[in-house]
């Protein structure tokens, strides 16, 4: 355990945790997306899935706790790393020009991350917290989801947020392999391409959910 904390102290170690937590979050996103996709089969399927998860009792609380920890560490590390990066370049260049290494995604990682954090809070307030507070079951939640996306502002914000997510993943996915030391002159290039594909897939996948929800409500 002390070794794991030791690692955390250095730049490379922080990036290692950033990468591992990012990878786990990607896993969560896959799960989340597949869960949400049950909406395709109608409100009932979605409600049944929600009720099934609620029915696992302590397990789901435990899973949510772990997930929260992963999210928090990813966010926390992101903030620390970004601040120390800013500190390392204490005087800015008056002209700065990329040599072609940076991409839009890599440059905006802290900002896309920040937008995703805002989105996460709103998202949790919108659904998770409201569900717990109101003591809703799956069906009530399913109805609420469909209703909520009738609001054009919310719908737009969600679409925007999942595009941001796609951008974040399009750098984060290959970058995490580099950070944990899985690197190769050729295969890393393939991972870079795969990351872009994944980014698009996640963005499209998550973007379709609100539309399905709205369609179901009609």
């Amino acid at each position: 355990m002390s070794l794991l904390i030791e690692i955390f102290k250095t730049s490379v170690g922080k990036k290692f945790y950033m990468a591992i937590s990012g990878l786990l979050l990607l896993g969560f996103l896959v799960f989340h997306l597949s869960g949400n996709s049950t909406l395709i089969f109608g409100h009932e399927t979605f409600a049944a899935f929600v009720d099934f998860l609620a029915g696992t009792g302590p397990l789901i609380y435990f899973a949510e706790l772990i997930l929260a920890l992963i999210f928090l560490s990813h966010i926390f590390l992101g903030i620390i790393l970004t601040l120390s990066n800013w500190k390392a370049r204490n005087v800015k260049y008056s002209v700065s020009n990329s040599r072609g290494g940076q991409t839009f995604a890599s440059k905006t990682m802290p900002y896309t991350g920040f937008i995703l954090l805002l989105f996460l809070i709103i998202h949790l307030l919108d659904y998770t917290i409201t569900k717990y507070m109101s003591g809703w079951d799956g069906w009530q939640l399913a109805m609420h989801v469909s209703d909520s996306f009738k609001n054009f502002a919310r719908l737009s914000f969600y679409i925007f947020a999942v595009i941001v997510l796609g951008v974040h993943i399009s750098h984060g996915f290959w970058s995490l392999f580099q950070s944990i030391g899985v690197t190769h002159t050729q295969y890393t290039k393939m991972l870079q391409k795969l990351a872009k594909v994944l980014g698009v897939l996640f963005a499209i996948g998550f973007a379709t959910i609100p539309f399905i929800a709205v369609t179901l409500a009609k």
Binding site: L81, R99, Q102, S106
Partner: peptide, 28 residues
């Protein structure tokens, strides 16, 4: 010094064209 965000600007600017895979290997 700052951390690595895998921008790869270093590799692009290196006059000796040292490759970024070195960073990955170092991480490992």
């Amino acid at each position: 010094f700052g951390n690595c965000s895998n921008h790869l600007e270093c590799e692009a600017a290196c006059p000796k064209e040292i490759q970024f895979v070195n960073i990955g290997r170092m991480n490992r």
